[in-house]
């Protein structure tokens, strides 16, 4: 595939990541009264100008649309050739709202707004409507593979010259009942913390002065019998004629769950102690598309040539030219990303 450059990025997350020049300088800890990491929301009036539209939009739509518009605005071309969104659970609050109205109103005289907005491609569609974008518009909804397929799709578009700029974003929200259900399912029993957020990336086939990083490749996989993640990571590097020695930093998407993080422990023990590692899910929380926060961090690391203390508290790095991200969702959906400095 052809080179693919990250021209602009944006993030609405549980950290101060939106509308600021700082990069994880002042870490926001979880509110001890809350069991999860909620996103810090901007003043949406500044981003979604139509008041009626803004009022109708749910939390996840506002996060997605504001992050997308901010990312597009800071790019050399505001209107991309394609818009690709990724989400694990889509517009969950609207889904619950409509389900609730079915039960409470006994299926009669229901307001369609929540139903309309519950559709998984609502955020991608709203971005297109606001930008009056008539191009390719896809939404991927596959757990810990949603964001990965979105990036692969974008890279294919750029390689085929079907697009020169693709806006790719990942969005997921927390709802109180989702927290209760996942808690009952044991998701937060072993150390992981639930999170949410919206990350958008303007990908371009052209390098510009302000580009953040080059996205070299993305690979998603499920482990077959007796297979280890290390083998897949090594063969991924091998495909690019690289070994772990050529990687300056490994960013790990471990969730903090001591049972599910086993592949990360194995991987860390495999790689040489000369390769520094960093983490990010303690900052954004765990969700289907949390890897997008990791990619947002790496784009910043490569552009600013700075590794935040919060991601890598003990140690130092010699250089920051090539970064590998290994992510896993529930130890089922695994993915590897390779990024390089411009």
């Amino acid at each position: 595939m052809k080179s693919c450059y990250i021209e602009n990025i944006s993030s609405i997350s549980p950290q101060n990541t939106f509308g600021t020049e700082e990069f994880l300088d002042n870490i926001v800890e979880r509110n001890p009264e809350m069991p999860y990491l909620s996103a810090i929301e901007p003043d949406y009036k500044l981003y979604i100008l139509n008041a009626g539209l803004r009022r109708r939009m749910s939390h996840v739509i506002k996060m997605g649309v504001a992050a997308a518009l901010e990312c597009a605005k800071g790019s050399s071309v505001e209107n991309p050739d394609a818009i690709i969104t990724a989400t694990g659970l889509g517009c969950l609050a609207d889904t619950e709202k409509f389900l609730n109205s079915i039960v409470v109103n006994h299926e009669q005289l229901l307001n369609p707004t929540a139903f309309i907005q519950s559709t998984f491609n609502t955020i991608g569609a709203q971005i297109a409507l606001i930008l009056q974008n008539k191009g390719y518009n896809f939404t991927y909804v596959h757990r810990g593979f949603s964001f990965e397929t979105a990036l692969i799709d974008a890279m294919m578009q750029l390689t085929d010259d079907e697009a020169t700029r693709v806006l790719v974003g990942a969005i997921d929200e927390i709802t109180p009942s989702e927290y209760e259900v996942t808690k009952r399912l044991g998701f937060w029993r072993n150390g992981a913390v639930m999170g949410e957020g919206a990350q958008f990336f303007m990908l371009s086939s052209e390098k510009t002065e302000s580009s953040y990083a080059e996205l070299i490749d993305v690979h998603q996989f499920q482990l077959k019998d007796n297979e280890k993640a290390d083998d897949r990571i090594n063969s991924f590097l091998d495909k690019h004629s690289l070994t772990m020695k050529d990687v300056d930093l490994v960013v790990l998407g471990n969730s903090g769950d001591k049972l599910l993080d086993v592949p990360f422990q194995n991987f860390k023990s495999e790689i040489s102690s000369n390769t520094p590692t960093a983490e990010f899910k303690h900052l954004c929380g765990e969700y289907h598309t949390a890897a997008s926060f990791g990619v947002w961090c790496i784009a910043n690391i490569l552009k600013r040539q700075k590794l935040p203390f919060a991601m890598h508290p003990n140690g130092k790095v010699d250089k920051l030219e090539r970064v590998l991200l290994y992510n896993s969702y529930q130890n089922v959906n695994h993915s590897i990303y390779l990024l390089e400095a411009i």
Binding site: G88, L89, F120, N137, F138, Y140, R143, F145, Q220
Partner: peptide, 29 residues
């Protein structure tokens, strides 16, 4: 409730027929 998300059916089908190399799911209405 564990099969609520769109990816669940894809993974169940892939397991059932033995597809292990690549799975993904699209939802654009």
């Amino acid at each position: 409730v564990i099969s609520h998300d769109c990816g669940d059916s894809t993974e169940k089908i892939a397991d059932f027929v033995g597809i292990r190399d690549y799975v993904t799911t699209i939802s654009t209405a």
